[in-house]
Amino acid sequence: MRIDDSDRRLLRQLMAAPGASTAELAARAGMTEATCWRKLDRLRNAGILRGQQAVIDWRALGWQVEVSLRITLDKTNPRAFDEFIAAARAVPEVLEIQSFLGRVDVRLNVIARDMGHYQQIYRDRILTLPHISDLEALMHLSDIKSEESLPL
């Protein structure tokens, strides 16, 4: 699906004010409410606009530690990747799972309340994940740039 300038304008306004009503988005994007509704519906049907979600700041809820784990899997088992991913998904403190080509196969983003809690998660949940051949932990210090919006 091709998007035009008014679609881009609407998407920019939606990223800037995700909780805005259709009427507010229409006014901000310079279009009628009916046009805005049709465009949003078309963008959803095309799979461009996949939905809206609440973004919760886990730090504000008392989770203070974030660790990025770079994991290399034992590739001698053809089911290693699938079995590892299934087990990693079951760890509630794993917020993000990414796969890569190269020496590192998977990256897990893990949060914990404090270092003692992280050590418990690491020993009881991470080290028991199947097929790990190498693991590197990177302690997160700060976000320099974390952008959710697209350059439309």
Rank of each mutant, 00 (worst) to 15 (best):
L25W: 00
A26V: 10
A29P: 13
G30W: 05
E33L: 02
A34L: 04
T35I: 05
C36K: 02
C36R: 02
R38H: 07
L40Y: 01
N45Y: 04
G47H: 02
L49M: 10
R50Q: 14
Q52Y: 08
Q52L: 10
Q53D: 05
I56A: 08
W58R: 12
W58E: 00
R59A: 12
V67R: 09
S68W: 08
R70I: 07
T72E: 08
D74P: 04
T76G: 04
R79W: 08
R79C: 00
A80Y: 03
E83Q: 15
A86S: 10
A88L: 13
P92R: 15
I97N: 06
L101P: 06
G102T: 14
V104G: 01
V106R: 00
L108S: 06
L108Q: 08
V110I: 03
V110Q: 09
I111Y: 12
G116Q: 08
G116K: 02
H117T: 03
Y118C: 09
Y118Q: 13
Q119H: 13
I121G: 04
I121D: 14
I121F: 12
R123C: 07
R123M: 01
L127A: 10
L129I: 12
L129V: 07
H131V: 11
I132Y: 03
S133N: 01
E136V: 11
E136W: 00
L138E: 13
